[in-house]
Nucleic acid binder design. Structure first.
Lengths: 233, 233
DNA sequence: CGGATCGTCATCGTATACGATTTCGGATAC
DNA sequence: GTATCCGAAATCGTATACGATGACGATCCG
């Protein structure tokens, strides 16, 4: 028998897990979308048992909410949770990028600049600004920087936190397009810092400020009247 | 019927989840311990299905490792993963405590000092130093500080990370009892900082240094020969 | 006409069943 | 004595089945 057969074969529960996660990430399943076990099982041509397992895992990650005897739905992200999660992401990612900085190759930095250039191009696209495309590029840019972090656990944490936020991430740039422009500028500044070998703490600070700006922009749309004071970390 | 009946009734999968997690936390299930579905199901008087779900959740949290067609076991924590996780904890907890500092009441601080005093007492206990008891108190001390953090997500992250590390946490103080003494001193310094209303960034730095000291001590036992250089965040 | 009650349907939660896979020990060959 | 192969036992993975629970609408009463 071939080695690859059973080793690489994904269990059904894992297939279900990936399938659902994929849908959530790609916004086909938006927050509040109800995940009916039987329906998903039928769609994937399996029984409900593996689907339940998959949903439990997603629940543990915070992407899905399970209500006893009622069912599961894609987690709603209210503003409070969102900004809390965003702040957590900010802190962890800042550290990850700072630690990654010395590891980044010239190619990595080139790629980061390239992505950022695409983002800049998108700002004045003849067909209008596309927040979704911008957001995807934004994630790629950030991923390019933090993925090189030598601490794999930090990378996991950043990935997980980003997945949680994925649900609402488009909305920021859709509602506050000006923030997109600022973002691109700050991205360049960050790459500059890394390229010139700035101290890690400085890079960390810069990353935190960058994220804080985005969060601030988000909060100003949800609470336009009150001035929200961000914790100063 | 009473309201509380079905609302508060835990599903079997949740019971299994808590039961297993409890055992892992209390070291009854040590790293490598094999979790056999049928056995656990019999013990809890339920079928294997809920147990599987529970284990999947624990897997998503990193406490348990599942191997296809082989079974589940409590995650082994090799030094690399351990120090990575420890560093992640250090960064997140430092931020959490810094943010919690302004929220801490006089009673909280009193309690923290109290716990720390117990730890100090344990150092010169007539019956000898008990690393396990010390570790429990250590966790309580830290929890007292970071639990007040206004960002619930950060608290979750710290809790989760601490659970992951739980498996090996005793060993540090068991192998390096001198570190325990240092720890107690540093704890007081941290409470001092908070009490006197030091800037959050300073508190964050202090927390990071505190954790780094413990990690350093741990690494010096596992790699006594080489000098491990810690990332300077 | 509004609200409470009851029955039905959709869906969940878990037990049981069984095929699939791995593990492990013993038998056999060298 | 060691290596290899085979078969049984242990365990996993998933389908199916069915009781339990909650959602929702129809009906009945005030």
């Amino acid at each position: 028998m071939t080695e690859t057969d059973s080793r690489l074969a994904l269990s059904k529960s894992q297939r279900a897990y990936r399938w659902i996660k994929e849908r959530i990430a790609s916004q086909q399943f938006t927050p509040g979308y109800r995940l009916v076990l039987g329906t998903i099982a039928a769609e994937l041509q399996m029984s409900v048992v593996p689907v339940r397992e998959a949903i439990r895992q997603l629940e543990a990650e915070g992407l899905v909410t399970f209500e006893r005897n009622v069912g599961a739905h894609v987690s709603m992200v209210d503003e409070r949770r969102y900004s809390a999660s965003m702040q957590a992401l900010s802190l962890v990612e800042a550290a990850a990028v700072a630690l990654a900085a010395p590891e980044l190759s010239a190619a990595d930095l080139r790629r980061a600049r390239e992505i950022n250039q695409h983002m800049r191009d998108g700002l004045d696209h003849p067909r209008g600004f596309d927040p979704h495309a911008f957001t995807v590029l934004n994630q790629e840019f950030h991923a390019t920087l933090y993925r090189a972090c030598p601490n794999p656990r930090l990378v996991e944490l950043v990935d997980a936190e980003w997945a949680r936020l994925g649900n609402m991430r488009d909305s920021i740039f859709a509602f506050v397009p000006d923030r997109a422009r600022e973002s691109v500028t700050e991205h360049d500044a960050i790459v500059d810092l890394i390229e010139r070998g700035a101290p890690v703490t400085e890079i960390e600070q810069q990353m935190r400020r960058h994220r804080a700006g985005t969060l601030q922009a988000f909060l100003s749309t949800t609470h336009p009247d009150q001035t929200v004071t961000l914790p100063e970390l």
